[in-house]
Design a protein around this nucleic acid. Structure first.
Lengths: 182, 182
DNA sequence: GCTTCGAACTTTACTGTTGAAGTCTTCAGG
DNA sequence: CCTGAAGACTTCAACAGTAAAGTTCGAAGC
């Protein structure tokens, strides 16, 4: 039956061992960090996806709501600005906003002072969904970090921001495509 | 001109400050870890994407090549198995393999001992691309971790695997969709 | 040895993203 | 004013992924 023995995803350690076998020029310590980062992120996105699905929205829509709320003040941004913040093309943003307007999560108006511009705002319902999603997310995130002491969390955050600084300096902001939440 | 002042993505610290302002029930330490993880991953995917693009392949194709090489031995896997390892649907795997066969990166044959099964193998060219991609990736990854001492790298890897264990236990392997590399 | 079930992959229809081309508005000259 | 150029969004065609409905083959019962 099991003609292909090891189905499913190999464990992290198995994967690292396989790398060592197939590609010796590899620092296992580095590979462990990098592989763990990728896998963690994938799992986290799955978890967020389940939570947002419960609210009847998608992770993609949640991202837009987050960007609007985090912008502060009147909670309005243009599609181009939103696209930059989310790392999408303007075209994708147009379609996403179309859907979200249809679902009543955001509004789209023309800027009367400059009629080329469009302004996207969050609705009551959108704000409500954002809040519920945040509540669920914080429970999940707290649970995720449960095994780390306060001191460890601090060190982890500090090390990650050091890595982040390094990539952001190297990639000042150029064409950032490729999916992911924030 | 700058009618919308703060365009582009806010810095990590700005983002955390915004969260504090809009949603007080939030542990900034936790949020810092989570946000840094997401951003780091996005930036890393962009970096990998540039490198694979130089080789004329996509990140998605690189993932398939990695899975085949990491499988070891005769470097062959069925589409279903590949799909599980990459967290894709079988249908997506079919299409991906179609493209990769057309580009000469992998081969597709029927298993003669069980004609329902299909076997995907890596070609010389696929293996060559994999190797070049690995070389570029290790340079990038080493550079990424440059600011961390050996001891820090160890601690970071250990903490990340602890987080990973926690999500993987919670999500034994259920419907893992959502994009990402490995 | 036929029939039925189930497994493994593919096909189809639809959703979402991209890149390139197009539209509309503003602004700077002439 | 009128024209040209640049900016901000949208539209269009092509591509990648998903879900659900096929196909096809193998294996188990009768």
């Amino acid at each position: 039956m099991a003609d292909t023995p090891g189905a499913s995803e190999p464990s992290l350690d198995e994967q690292i061992a396989a790398y060592q076998r197939e590609f010796q020029d590899l620092d296992p310590q580095v590979e462990k960090v990098v592989s763990a980062l990728s896998r963690l992120n994938r799992r986290m996105n799955v978890a967020y996806g389940r939570q947002t699905a419960e609210l009847g929205i998608s992770n993609a829509e949640w991202e837009v709501l987050k960007a609007l709320v985090l912008a502060g003040a009147p909670y309005r941004l243009g599609p181009g600005d939103l696209a930059k913040r989310l790392g999408l093309t303007p075209a994708a943003m147009t379609h996403r906003i179309d859907r979200m307007v249809a679902e009543g999560l955001v509004t789209r108006e023309r800027d009367e002072s400059n009629r080329v511009r469009v302004i996207v705002g969050i609705t009551e319902e959108g704000r409500g969904k954002w809040l519920e999603a945040m509540r669920m997310a914080t429970v999940f995130e707290e649970d995720l970090l449960q095994d780390l002491s306060g001191e460890e969390r601090g060190r982890l955050g500090e090390m990650l921001t050091r890595l982040l600084r390094r990539v952001e300096d190297a990639q000042p902001d150029a064409g950032g495509r490729l999916s992911d939440l924030d």
